[in-house]
Design a protein around this nucleic acid. Structure first.
Length: 398
DNA sequence: CGCTGTTTATCGAAAG
DNA sequence: CTTTCGATAAACAGCG
């Protein structure tokens, strides 16, 4: 049937002749997206030692860890070991060795990643385009989440999401059609995103997209390229009901688990089906699958964060959901409750709170990005040259 | 018509 | 090796 389908899927020598993103992605190392993890671990190490500095370095691009780290702050401040659990991962010694100073990150991200993934590089390209165009080490889901998070209202229209991404990551100024389609797909496909009908007073088309209140720590493992589990309805056939998967087995739930969705409470009101319309908000109730993976997943740092949203257990009620949702929808950007203000792992807020960490180049996409984003939003900074500076500069002066 | 959303399918890669 | 996740393509429905 779809004979045509697969065609060019990966054969787009868009730029740099990399056939498939493997190479382009090199950034954080597609191949070792885990790089995130190793680094995490690294950070955790640092953290342990009391490397306060770690807090900042995390803001680096190459390591989403930063984010993770921040989130830790949000959640559990920092117990020496706290971070570790969240990582749930392993850390290649080799990697850890990389973990030098703050700049170490750069080192890591520098040509390195290119190499890392460039393994199969069949491209003789003498020099790769500037890294400014490297694919950020974030999945679309992460990006969307970050975008939404950084918005004051905690919700954005599709177009705004596009904007945020393109503004921050030069990489996405190319092949827009391609990734935007992916973004759209992600929004619709992933239950962690909910569609909020746009307010009548707001012009423009399309609805607003927000995060499902329970999507809390989708990336608590610190890996922004891949979540442990995504909320997904069964691939089922037309039977949206799906359900079935008790998930329980999988869900052994480790502790909080949670993040993902509401695991159990499907009970009563929630129809087996997928979406629940809460006051106009579409909630796609996920089939509760909890983090199967995280073996250890101790009380995740965000644990409490989660319950912030998932009001204990009873949420799930459309209304409650609605409440939660609307809560974010409130226009009040920065001032919300100190805690309540979305402590997502991503919590850009957290990220933002991070002061500096803006080393040049790819050093700090995130925080830098956020700042940029912020400035973009903020009339005061109409000029987001900040980030421009960061990205625009020819990192490789050589 | 173009943008927004949804949905299906496929492939690669990571995780277990 | 099998699942699951993520990226990408693409067909298609709605809407302004």
């Amino acid at each position: 049937m779809l004979s045509a389908v697969k065609m060019e899927g990966h054969e787009h020598p868009d730029w740099s002749g990399s056939s498939y993103y493997g190479e382009t992605e090199c950034y954080a190392a597609a191949g070792n997206m885990n790089s995130g993890q190793p680094m995490n671990s690294m950070s955790s190490y640092m953290n342990a030692p009391g490397m306060a500095g770690a807090g900042h370095m995390n803001a680096h691009y190459a390591n989403p860890v930063g984010v993770n780290h921040s989130m830790m702050h949000a959640g559990v401040s920092q117990s020496p070991g706290a971070g570790i659990p969240g990582l749930g991962g392993a850390l290649p010694p080799s990697m850890s060795s990389i973990s030098p100073p703050p700049y170490g990150n750069m080192a890591v991200m520098s040509p390195v990643y290119g190499q890392a993934c460039g393994i199969r590089s069949r491209e003789p390209k003498p020099y790769r385009r500037s890294y400014t165009h490297a694919k950020p080490p974030y999945s679309y889901i992460s990006l969307i989440t970050m975008a939404i998070q950084q918005s004051g209202s905690k919700m954005l229209t599709l177009n705004e999401i596009y904007q945020w991404i393109t503004d921050l990551f030069p990489f996405y100024r190319q092949n827009q059609q391609r990734w935007q389609n992916s973004i759209r797909h992600s929004l619709s496909f992933n239950d962690c995103f909910i569609k909020v009908p746009r307010m009548p007073d707001k012009p423009g088309k399309g609805s607003f997209w927000a995060l499902h209140p329970d999507s809390g720590n989708m990336f608590e493992n610190g890996c922004y390229l891949r979540r442990q589990k995504r909320f997904r309805k069964i691939p089922g056939t037309g039977d949206k009901e799906a359900a079935g998967k008790p998930g329980s087995e999988v869900a052994s739930v480790t502790t909080s688990s949670a993040g993902s969705d509401s695991p159990h409470s499907s009970s009563a009101s929630s129809p087996p089906s997928a979406d629940v319309k809460a006051a106009g908000v579409d909630f796609k109730l996920p089939r509760g699958e909890l983090l199967p993976c995280s073996p250890v997943r101790v009380p995740s740092p965000l644990a409490h964060t989660q319950h912030l949203f998932s009001h204990h257990h009873h949420h799930h009620h459309p209304l409650l959901l609605h409440e939660a949702a609307t809560a974010h929808l409130k226009p009040d950007p920065y001032h919300q409750h100190p805690h309540y203000s979305f402590n997502h792992p991503f919590s850009i807020n957290n990220l933002m709170s991070e002061p500096p960490a803006q080393y040049g180049g790819y050093g700090c996409p995130v925080s830098g990005a956020l700042v940029a984003a912020k400035s973009a939003l903020d009339p005061a900074h109409a000029d987001n040259n900040y980030y421009r500076g960061v990205y625009a500069r020819p990192i490789m002066n050589s």
